[in-house]
Design a binder for these strands. Structure first.
Length: 425
RNA sequence: GGAGAAUUACCCAAGUGGUUGAAGGGGUCGGUCUUGAAAACCGAAAGGGGGUGCAUAGCCCCGCUAGGGUUCGAAUCCCUAAUUCUCCGCCA
């Protein structure tokens, strides 16, 4: 949520900043609501002060044997007037809230505007793998190695579902365990959150109200709950309505959950297989920091995410996203993109983002500094990582001429020492 | 799923209609004592949101889980909800 004070003071600045996010904002109506609201508040509160004074004088008047019915009458008159104003105030409040709740976050000043086409690769790691033979894509590989069963996945769940089988399940689990062990090493706290969350959590993360349709809602529970689209949604709500002391910041968490999303199915032909599904596995990192520390935390998250891909020995790049391509709630995002040889392009395996105080404002997550200063914390998140593209990347980048696939060294301890996956058919 | 109870500030807790921001304790901070610490004693500060405002000054409004209601006046009475606990049932 953008601070209304900022809009009040620098509407043009906010407008220009949002333009970079391809968002055209007009604040004239909002500002007039806001002005009206504050004028009303002054009237209503003056009236309340008057009523309080009158009521407080009742006991003394009674003791003195005076007639208090006149006081009662006066208070009632003021109350009647206020009732009207209150109604109006409520209306203004909800209009203002709804308007602001839908605004995206303000992108950082150094970002270029526009969409995807303006993303910029800022780092390239490793070399594009070269093959002296005709390569297979990950779907072929997964099938020939008996790692994934697409047929039965569709049978038991429907389109957009697959099953990790046998060594595929072990590889998937090994990847997750590798990530988990790395985060533990770095001192992050491991969280296993519930997968069904309430509406408020979606609001705070910034997914709602705008993206209510992108998640799966569960009927049968009252009030309704939704399946989390990413563990971030759970993690940034951990400290909702809390005031954290500076000493306990930064808070560093990571969680493993499947991510449930409706957007599956929009894939192009070259994206077949496990690149998009209704459900995929991800380990997610989240940090809560003091505002002045969030830039540093951002660098740390980017480094951590990149480091995982690096340790897996995969070729990848890091892109700095243009303002219009970063998600609604975020002020800054770098993507880690791993190379998929069969389609010759780089696919996102991690998005590292700084939400600054956007989510903290929505969730009232505050800090109290050592010197008594109060304010909103900054929240940041980064995948660390999503397996659904790491898995294909490993299969494709590590494939051998005989159709086998080498297991990256760092994963071998998590797979009982298995070094190579051999074709089963 | 059924029955009951609870929810007060950082924590525990008093308070059932009228200066209650809200007793008391713990904790915190400062001091005395001590080589230092503990203990004891003395003292202090202590929530958050909002309006006005240059103000982290003052004034005012809101505020005792949340949202409504009754009343001149509510932490206190009524309704609804959330959460927690206990018992019963069911069950990984």
């Amino acid at each position: 949520m953008i601070d209304i004070n900022l809009i009040r003071e620098k509407p043009e600045y906010v407008k220009e900043a949002l333009k970079k996010k391809l968002w055209d904002a007009d604040f004239t109506e909002l500002l007039s609501w806001d002005k009206e609201k504050r004028e009303l508040i002054q009237i209503v509160e003056a009236n309340k002060a008057e009523m309080n004074k009158l009521s407080a004088s009742v006991p003394a008047a009674k003791k003195a044997g005076e007639d208090v019915t006149l006081i009662f009458k006066k208070v009632k008159e003021i109350a009647a007037k206020n009732a009207e104003f209150d109604e109006k105030l409520k209306e203004l409040d909800s209009k203002i809230h709804d308007f602001i709740a839908c605004l995206p976050n303000i992108p950082d000043d150094d970002l270029v505007g526009g969409g995807k086409e303006n993303n910029k690769v800022i780092e390239v790691h490793g070399k594009k793998p070269e093959f002296s033979f005709k390569i297979k894509d990950h779907v072929e590989l997964a099938e020939s190695l008996g790692l994934v069963d697409y047929q039965r996945g569709a049978k038991i769940a429907g389109r957009g579902a697959w099953i990790y089988t046998n060594l595929g399940a072990r590889l998937e689990w090994a990847i997750l365990n590798f990530f988990i062990s790395e985060h533990l090493k770095d001192g992050y706290e491991f969280i296993l959150p519930p997968h069904l969350l309430n509406e408020e959590s979606g609001f705070v993360a910034g997914q709602f109200p705008k993206f209510r349709e992108d998640v799966f809602w569960l009927s049968g529970l009252e009030p309704q709950r939704f399946l989390l689209p990413t563990a971030e949604t759970a993690l940034v709500n951990l400290h909702r309505n809390e005031i954290l002391s500076e000493e306990e910041l930064p808070k560093k968490y990571f969680a493993y959950t499947p991510c449930y999303r409706r957007e599956a199915g929009s894939y192009r032909t070259e994206e077949r297989g496990m690149i998009r599904g209704y459900q995929f596995n991800k380990v997610e990192m989240v940090q809560y920091t003091m505002p002045e520390d969030s830039d540093k935390a951002f660098e740390e998250l980017v480094f951590k995410a990149a480091n995982l891909v690096e340790k897996l020995g995969l070729h990848f790049q890091i892109s700095k996203l243009a303002a219009g391509d970063i998600s609604h709630s975020m002020a800054r995002t770098y993507d880690i993109e791993v190379y998929i040889p069969s389609i010759g392009i780089y696919k996102e395996v991690s998005s590292a983002s700084n939400a600054r105080d956007y989510q903290a404002r929505r969730g009232m997550v505050r800090f109290k500094s050592k010197d008594g200063r109060k304010g909103y914390v900054h929240t940041l998140n980064a995948s660390g990582l999503a397996t659904s593209r790491i898995f294909p990347a490993i299969l494709e980048q590590y494939q051998q001429e005989d159709g086998s696939v080498l297991v990256p060294e760092v994963l071998q301890p998590f797979m009982g020492g298995i070094k190579v996956l051999k074709p089963v058919k």
